[in-house]
Design a protein around this nucleic acid. Sequence first.
DNA 1: ATGGCCAGCATCGCTGGA
Length: 256
Amino acid sequence: MKLAAWNVNSLKVRLPQLLEWLAEQSPDVVCLQETKLEDHNFPQQEIEAAGYQMVFSGQKTYNGVALLTREMPSDVVCGNPHFPDDPQKRLIAATVRGVRVVCAYVPNGQALDSDKYAYKLRWLAALTPWLAEQLAANPQFVLAGDFNIAPEDRDVHDPAAWAGQILCSDAERAAFQRLLALGLKDSFRLFEQAEKSFSWWDYRMLGFQKNLGVRIDHILLSEPLAARCTAASIDRAMRKRERPSDHAPVIAELKD
DNA sequence: ATGGCCAGCATCGCTGGA
C-alpha cells in the first residue's frame, strides 16, 4: 500500500501535474491539501477516469483537503469535533482497506505575533485528543499532510536563520512531539535519508535550485503501520516540473 | 540590496502562503 501526501497549491492549476503523477506513481491513497476549490468545482470526472475514488472538503480561495483512494473509502469525517464550527476546511478522514487515514492541512500561522499563530496552536491543541480517539478506535492509523512544522533543525536549510521563526518555534515543535507521543512515527525518519531533505521550497530566490527548503509535509504512522513500512521518500522530481506546486509529494510504502 | 514567486480575486493592487 503506497500512501502519499501532497500540498498541490490549487488543484485547478495543478490537475494536469496530479494526473501525470498518479499515472507514474500509482499511489493507493493520496492526501491532498490546498485544493482551493469549492466542492461543486472538484474535478471528479478527471480523477475517476484516472482510477480513483475521492472524498473532499473544500472552500473558495483557501485551504481545502481531499482523499484519493483506489477503493471506496468509508466512515468519512470532515473537520474536528473537538474544534467545532471551524470555517476553514483543513481536515478529512476516512477508512481505506482497514486503515484509518487522516488528511490534515495544519494552519501556517504566518508569524509568532499573528492571530493566525494563536489559531494554529489552538487548532493543533484540539487535534491531539481527536487523534487519540481515532487511533484508539483503529490502531491501523495514519496522519498525513502539510503540518507546517519543521520538527527538527535538520529539517531546515538554515536552522540559525529559522530559529524561533514560524514553522520552527518551540510551541509548534512541542505540538508535533505531542502528536508523536500519541504513538505515531515520522515515516521519513524510519529510514536513512540524505541530509538536507526538504518538502517545501520558496518560489522566490531560486529556493529549489539552491535547496533552501524545509521539511514540513509528513506521514505519521501508528506502531502497527510503522512495522509494515518498507520505504519513505520525498518526490523532489515534481518540484522540477513545469508550473510546480511549491511542495513536493511525500510517500510512504507499506507491505500488505 | 534583507527583495526577488505564485494563486486567487478582483482589477490595474491586495492577501496569503511558509
